[in-house]
Design a protein around this nucleic acid. Structure first.
Lengths: 195, 195
DNA sequence: CTCTCATTTCAGAAGTTTCTGAAAATTGTG
DNA sequence: CACAATTTTCAGAAACTTCTGAAATGAGAG
């Protein structure tokens, strides 16, 4: 089935193959997944021909796949002095990779839906059927807006704080029982003043 | 291009078409996306033939697509008394839908990778190349574990608390500056006792 | 300007997924 | 148990995606 993939150590081989298979579930294709995996575990940046060699796929396929990875901002281009080939790596901070991935997926998978929903909610509903549908669209819109607002807020955190936030998890909500503490956080929310 | 989709009100039509197109980006196919969208905005449960009618696709395609949606736990089956056809709806709590979606995507897109990583990290590395690769795999593993642990913790929250947690966002980390407060939350963590 | 090395583009071949109609299976009813 | 009303399965057709080799383009060195 594959011609090469044989120069690679067993661990790297298994990882590359796995990413290739997962690629399809992730909406990127097998080759793109394999190339990304290979770059991710390689100590040195690789040039296109090394990838051809390692994965046993055509030069043009590598070229197109690298282009796609660049479109996702998931690879970095390096130039060695005195060599005019392009060399590729992945960023080496996994948190950075996560941010990029989240950002790109949001852009492709969430933002278009959000804007369609906004648009449809502007229309005046005609008839019962539409009134009900708009209610449902409104619920979906509110949900997605809440999630993206949270994401926009949280995505800027440095890794250290991000780890802390994750570690805290749902325990955060313990604070929410004692409302005055929330106020002390400085969040200004217009809320119907409760007794 | 499509035969039907004409009985539908403009809003519903637009929403259904959008979900169909997004379907591909989401790894579900167009028909599945359309059916889901249609059920989501319909006031009453629909039976297969009504879906055929509304979307202008073949009966067998509807059957297979509904089956796939059931595999994702995204539709509910209803039976009307005195009618032996199956009627379908989506759950009507959007938070429930979100949870289901997250759960299913995690199962398909994250868990397999996590288990491959765990397995590969058990192997003793042979050579420098593998040592480096394993370091990288370890970083990825740690990251994913942190995210999934957080997710497992948070997913059980009722919608109200979930909303509160999202609204709080990164402000949570303000607490982390005053470490004693965190301890008061009852989290037991083994940490090298700092001065 | 031209030669060479490297990358990109592109038309079509290979492979995969989706969709259909027809036939088979299932299920409740008289 | 036979029937009619449904749903499911399945083989092949249609549509789409991925991959390739060959040809075109680009870019630095002399």
């Amino acid at each position: 089935m594959w011609r090469q993939l044989v120069n690679l150590t067993p661990t790297i081989q298994a990882f590359v193959l796995h990413f290739g298979e997962m690629g399809s579930r992730w909406g990127i294709n097998r080759t793109v997944g394999q190339i990304y995996a290979l770059l991710y575990v390689s100590r040195e940046p690789l040039c296109a021909d090394q990838i051809v060699e390692a994965l046993g796929i055509s030069r043009s396929n590598v070229s197109m796949s690298l282009r796609e990875l660049q479109g996702w901002n998931l690879v970095l281009l390096k130039h060695l002095p005195g060599d005019r080939r392009d060399f590729f790596t992945t960023p080496d901070d996994v948190w950075q990779i996560l941010r990029t991935l989240a950002e790109e997926r949001k852009k492709r998978e969430v933002d278009p839906t959000l804007s369609v929903l906004r648009e449809l909610l502007m229309q005046a509903p005609s008839g019962e059927e539409e009134r009900f549908a708009q209610t449902r669209l409104g619920e979906m819109h509110t949900l997605i807006e809440r999630l993206t607002t949270w994401y926009d807020d949280v995505k800027r955190l440095e890794p250290e704080r991000m780890v802390a936030l994750l570690a805290l998890g749902s325990k955060v909500t313990k604070f929410l029982d004692t409302k005055d503490r929330i106020v002390s956080l400085g969040r200004k929310r217009k809320e119907p003043a409760a007794p």
